[in-house]
Design a protein around this nucleic acid. Structure first.
Lengths: 193, 193
DNA sequence: CGCGACGTTGATTTGCCTCAACGATTGTGG
DNA sequence: CCACAATCGTTGAGGCAAATCAACGTCGCG
């Protein structure tokens, strides 16, 4: 477990004591493709670090359509952040589904908060991640406001080339906010150019 | 300045030493309606806390259309987060415009990072804010994916009733990702019901 | 008062959706 | 390992929500 922790925090030069403290709250889990990490209504208490594999968070609306909020691959964190980080603690509203067999590290938000308080490097780590994610979200919202579907797809492929090859067509469509049919047509158009 | 700091961090019970440390990096500034805090191309080094007034961040696309990323009122923080929090330090890409005469507190990202390292309460404060904002962003993206324009407007009014009365119609339209004409028609429809 | 900024309304266009049918690919049990 | 089914992706026809273009009221400010 210690070497995993060292890997997660690789830019932060943790000492042995700190690594031990962190390891205590961690649990390694394996997840098979198509398995669910979280489903709507469940109590969300944990954040998950992805050592290997690929997952996605999606919301299922009343009419049965899926809307992909997030993909996550090696080195990313995933959870139902609306439930976990919101002002009021809510139950999960989304699904988190395994897209490719995955190895995860699981830690409770409580334990993580405690580590943040006790180990400045951990809070530094958390802040860095949150800030970067924050910038990325601003970008995504801006793109959604600014660009037509075709350009959003092109950007997606450019930004996440590794994810594009891994996931289904309709996963990408639901991430971009379009239908599979539209995405299919967009791809055709791009292929012709 | 000290009482202002106490006010910003009111849930965190700072002691006098901490308050002094924080005050050192702060600068109070006043901004008149229609003034710009940030314009594209500028170097972004600061975060701004709003004590009074209202501002908005918007992006101007190639075709001359405005896209509002964020409104901010009393008690909120504002900056060009894509530039400030992104992986690479970029120049500003957006405008931040004063919508209502404002009193701000200005602090450089550098100073703030240092305070985070030296005062756990400050990093706790920052983490709490980032996490909440993070959840809010997830919500906004989900809404944009899920809901038609009319429902997004209804939600906006419900979520930010104070902002709705303060800003121009076309500010809201560009926040929701629709045209002023569409918003006008939506309002008409809602008024009839 | 008069001008410019803002909001509304109407006519038309368009990007994307919906519905439907049909290939292609994947996975599974015999 | 093949056969078949289920899942996934593509294509076409038609429809709709919202954009565009254009004109006109209205409000606020110099």
């Amino acid at each position: 477990m210690d070497s995993m922790v060292r890997d997660v925090f690789k830019d932060f030069n943790l000492n042995d004591v700190e690594i031990n403290m962190i390891s205590e709250g961690l649990e390694a889990i394996e997840l098979k493709k198509k398995a669910f990490l979280i489903t709507p209504g469940k109590d969300v208490q944990h954040i998950y670090y992805i050592r290997r594999g690929c997952l996605r968070t999606y919301y299922l609306d009343d009419s049965g359509k899926e809307h992909t909020l997030q993909f996550a691959v090696e080195g990313w964190w995933i959870s139902d952040y609306i439930a976990l980080f919101g002002r009021e603690r809510l139950k999960a509203i989304s699904y988190i589904e395994c897209i490719q067999d995955a190895s995860l590290l699981k830690i409770s938000k409580n334990d993580f908060d405690n580590l943040c308080e006790r180990i400045p490097k951990v809070s530094g780590f958390h802040i860095r991640n949150l800030e970067r994610a924050f910038a990325a979200f601003h970008r995504r919202i801006l793109e959604n406001l600014t660009l037509p579907a075709k350009d959003r797809y092109v950007n997606f492929v450019k930004t996440y080339p590794n994810i594009e090859q891994l996931v289904k067509n309709y996963h990408i469509a639901s991430f971009l906010g379009i239908t599979t049919e539209s995405l299919s047509r967009i791809r055709k158009e791009l292929a012709l150019q």
